[in-house]
Amino acid sequence: MGMRVGYARVSSLGQKLDVQLDKLSDCDRIYHEKASAGSKKIRMELQKVLDFVREEDVFVVTKLDRLARSMVDLSIIVQRLEEKNVDLVVLDQGIDTTTIYGRLQFNILASIGEFERGLIRERSREGREKAISRGVQFGAKSKLKKEEVCQLVRDFEAPGCSKVEIAEHYGLSRSSVYRFHKEHCNDLC
């Protein structure tokens, strides 16, 4: 049988870990941190515990919101645990994937998370297609106007003209000079 490994998190410096640590007291090892779940900052202790757990270990948290930012985030964490054959126990919500009923309950939650990810991807694709149909251009805007691109192509093809000097003149990298030439050498300038 593996270890019981606990994880506790509070989101601000003013909050205390005491209640969570008491509930996790039967764990063989506990990781804890003070980090907001919604922040872009990486939760280092969570990464450490996910790296640490091994096959047949049980990963224990007090509540799902102490573990994940969203259903999508939870789904990613659970996938990592499943790949390592590690069970998950969420004490306050009665989720225990060491039992058949706990796995069923959790698989339902994971399915909802997967559905949510699919909806997000679909909405993003539809929004992008709609924007393109309205003429929205994605990506960085060109640093050069059409006349400058035409002049760059002529300079590029002029004998004895240094590509480095062209790049410096237009404020581009050498690779950009070559790319502009390749993309526009057949344009009627």
Rank of each mutant, 00 (worst) to 15 (best):
F180Y: 15
C189Y: 10
V149A: 09
Q47D: 15
D73H: 04
R4H: 12
A140E: 10
V78Q: 03
S173K: 12
A140G: 12
E83D: 15
S124F: 03
R154S: 06
M3I: 13
G171H: 03
K34R: 15
K41Y: 09
V10P: 00
E129M: 09
D187Y: 10
D96H: 09
E116D: 11
I166V: 08
F138C: 08
G118A: 12
A35S: 09
L152K: 03
G14S: 15
S142W: 13
A131L: 03
S111R: 07
N186V: 05
D57H: 08
V177M: 01
Q151N: 09
E147C: 02
L46R: 08
T98H: 12
V72D: 04
R69S: 07
S36T: 07
E33C: 11
L17Y: 06
R123G: 12
V5T: 02
I42M: 12
G171C: 07
M44H: 13
D22A: 15
K130G: 12
F180N: 04
D73A: 04
V19L: 10
T99Q: 12
R29E: 12
K16F: 14
S70L: 06
S173L: 10
S25A: 12
V153S: 03
L13I: 14
G6N: 02
S36K: 08
A167W: 11
T99S: 15
I76L: 11
D87V: 04
K141I: 03
M3C: 15
T62R: 04
R54P: 05
R4Q: 15
R9T: 10
G127P: 00
G171A: 05
L91M: 04
S175T: 09
K63M: 02
S176N: 10
G139H: 02
